[in-house]
């Protein structure tokens, strides 16, 4: 009965959604702001990756909010699961093959994560993706070694300092430039964009993405750690 009602409701809702979206043009050239961003990204921001330019520069305020959401999730999780702290994870030790392999590839995964967030303005990826890659490396270690522990003090320092760096970079735009999150290293008369497709380019975009990468890596690690500690 309940299922039939749910299906009926969904059929009606789905019909209207599909009917509305069939009117939406598909596969056309970008218009409006999308077109503008594609045209201006290399000359205005110096970043090769237009998505990164939008995420960090044009819509940088969203990213500040995004970082806040992750921080908030980590904080909320810590608050909700507070009295679980200090318990040991009760995972089985993995087999020797898994253990040795993960010991070898763990540093490589972290390196890949760092590469992804440092080159966020040049290649696909960025702070969030790089941070997530680092956290998967830590997850691998959690799974294979029962005794693997992260340094909680260091993690919360990294979280806080990276967050403060982001907001401070934003406020620096307000102090030395005209607006919050303004790319203070770029622009002005000389247009210090750097050379397109070179690591040192695009002003504060890579700096912000490095801070974001550290922050996301630390937060996701803390999330995983908190969750795994509740396994009984």
């Amino acid at each position: 009965m309940r299922k039939a009602l749910a299906i009926l409701l969904l059929v009606i809702v789905g019909y209207y959604f599909i009917a509305i979206f069939l009117n939406v043009p598909f596969g056309n050239k970008p218009k409006g702001v999308g077109e503008y961003y594609l045209d201006k990204t290399p000359t205005q921001t110096g970043a090769a990756n237009a998505v990164t330019a939008i995420v960090v520069s044009y819509r940088g305020f969203d990213t500040l909010g995004e970082v806040t959401v992750l921080f908030l999730a980590a904080t909320g999780l810590g608050a909700i699961l507070f009295d679980k702290k200090g318990k040991k994870r009760r995972l089985q030790n993995a087999s020797i093959i898994v253990k040795e392999t993960s010991r070898v590839i763990y540093p490589l995964i972290v390196l890949l994560g760092a590469y992804v967030f440092i080159h966020g303005h040049l290649t696909p990826g960025g702070g969030f993706q790089g941070g997530a890659i680092i956290a998967t490396g830590v997850l691998l270690m959690f799974m294979s070694y029962r005794s693997f522990e992260t340094n909680h003090g260091a993690l919360s320092w990294i979280e806080s300092l990276a967050g403060i760096t982001f907001v401070s970079l934003g406020l620096s735009g307000l102090i030395w430039g005209t607006s919050f999150l303004q790319n203070i290293l770029v622009g002005g008369a000389q247009q210090n964009l750097g050379q397109l497709n070179h690591l040192v380019s695009a002003g504060i975009i890579p700096l912000i993405y490095i801070a974001v990468g550290f922050k996301v890596g630390a937060e996701l690690t803390a999330l995983l750690d908190n969750m795994l500690k509740t396994i009984k």
Binding site: G32, V33, Y36, Y37, Q44, S57, Y58, R59, G60, F61, D62, G173, G177, T178, S179, F180, L181, Q182, N183, G187
Partner: peptide, 13 residues
């Protein structure tokens, strides 16, 4: 009206 990141509307926030 405060422009964030120095891009005028509707391109910036």
């Amino acid at each position: 009206v405060e422009i964030i990141a120095g891009f005028k509307p509707p391109f910036g926030i």
